[in-house]
Amino acid sequence: MPEEGKILDIARISFLNMIKEMMTLGGVAAAKGGLIRNALACAEKIKEVDYPDFDAFIEAIRNATNPITMIEGKAEHTGDGIFGLPACPFAPAISNYTEVFGSLPDGFAEFTEEFNKPGPATSRYRIGEGAGVSPFCAVHQPLRSAIGDRITIGGKQVRIYQLGCKSGAGKKGFADRLIEEAGVDRSVVDAVLDNHMCCYCVKLE
């Protein structure tokens, strides 16, 4: 039996290549900004929702009716408003790309470094600053935070803090400033990342 041909998911492949093109044409910072703004534009399409209490919010995550689960699947609440996401929503794209081309496009490390730099966007959306492990975090994290900005619990505004993330190779990234700001112990984030790919916490204003 001849080996079956590898199939490209063109949407995923082109997205990864697009990031590379954006970096080449406009520079890493502009590419980062472009991805973040793309995520924010997506979040604006999400309908605003209010949950009567935190339990209802968690229940909506468990049964995948929470807007956040729409973009990343079901996260696990590990206590004190801290959540762990078992799988990175971009993992299939990475797998598909590397399966076909062997490795990710050049420059992704540079992009990730740029994403982790403090700036207006990281501050406003409480993302990056060490919690980025790939360019996809520049889409995922602001998207989740911006969706969180459209959620209230008992009338109080939800604020999502990205605390850490783990790459496919197992390397953990921690947003130490945000961990401190959220009042979470770094060891807790570390422990969550042992069993999950992404760690964030939910606070109420």
Partner: peptide, 8 residues
């Protein structure tokens, strides 16, 4: 403007 396009 930050290099990423976000206003300071």
């Amino acid at each position: 403007v930050g290099r990423d396009g976000f206003l300071l």
